[in-house]
């Protein structure tokens, strides 16, 4: 019973761990130089020498996937951190202070939610310029509303608890109470939101890079590999399938992880 209940958590953890380990190994070692061109060996099918085959320039796809994992994790982590930090500032103050601060912040969040996040990201990138840094900033801003709303609802819930009043009665100030007393209680829902935001950011980055707006060469990116694989979808189908699978596994992994975390959290409550 318990095992069944935790199954998504374990599958999610496994998928994410596989990708994470691949990323860690790529920091020290890749089977081939991910940028080494070998014109004699273009679009080779998967074999023992080239595990995932080679691309249109004869580069080893497995090495490039490993290299791309770095970008995926970097973008996921930084974007989720930006979203978490700004979302916390907005959500926590809205939830804790209430009144006009809450009203103002939440209308701002509503305005952000009113048009699709990916459009917002495209707009930001169009105004500034495509590249890793601007992609990360755009994706971070995109994930603010989700964090702000979840953190706000936790803060509204906990601010009426006796231990908050008890801390006020002991001379605790607002910031002390928000960070030392309420935040530790709100960790579970924040973790769920963070893991969802992580997968959302990776998917959005792939989308942007596919459109040519995201990460620019020479930074490796799974989204751009997908775009490069597109013309060879009939002649070298493994290229597009493998890259698509890798993105799917990591995103699915994070989604299952967040589902699993939420179940564990709800079970306790």
């Amino acid at each position: 019973m318990i095992k069944k209940h935790r199954l998504p958590l374990y599958i999610g953890l496994t998928f994410v761990s596989i990708a994470f380990i691949m990323m860690l190994i790529s920091l020290f070692y890749t089977p081939y130089d991910p940028n080494a061109i070998d014109p004699t060996n273009r679009l080779a099918s998967p074999s023992l020498t080239h595990l995932f085959g080679t691309d249109n320039f004869g580069r080893d796809i497995f090495s490039r996937v490993m290299e791309g994992a770095k970008t995926a994790f970097l973008i996921g982590t930084v974007a989720a951190s930006i979203g978490l930090f700004l979302g916390f500032l907005l959500g926590a103050s809205a939830g804790y202070f209430g009144g006009w601060i809450d009203e103002l912040t939440m209308r701002f969040i509503d305005a952000m939610l009113a048009f699709p996040g990916i459009l917002l990201a495209i707009m930001l990138i169009a105004v500034f310029e495509p590249g890793m840094k601007n992609t990360v900033i755009a994706l971070g801003i995109m994930s603010i509303p989700a964090f702000a709303r979840i953190i706000r609802s936790s803060f509204i819930q906990y601010k009426s608890y006796d231990f908050v009043k008890a801390s006020i009665a002991k001379g605790g100030g607002a910031i002390h109470i928000m960070i030392k007393h309420i935040l530790p209680n709100a960790v579970s829902p924040i973790l769920v939101a963070a893991s969802l935001s992580f997968s959302g950011s990776i998917l959005a980055e792939s989308g942007l890079s596919y459109l040519g707006l995201g990460v620019q060469p020479p930074d490796p990116s799974w989204g751009r590999m997908l775009k490069e694989a597109q013309p060879y979808i009939t002649s070298a189908p493994w290229y597009v399938i493998i890259v698509g699978m890798v993105i799917t596994i990591l995103v699915l992994g994070f989604n299952l992880l967040s589902d699993g975390l939420r179940d564990v959290h709800d079970k306790k409550a």
């Binding site: 608890y161 006796d162 231990f163 009043k165 008890a166 801390s167 009665a169 002991k170 030392k180 007393h181 530790p184 209680n185 960790v187």
Partner: peptide, 15 residues
């Protein structure tokens, strides 16, 4: 200083 009625809720469960 003040002591509250409910010892179940007046302490922070995660500290």
């Amino acid at each position: 200083t003040m002591i509250f009625q409910e010892p179940m809720t007046s302490l922070n469960p995660v500290l």
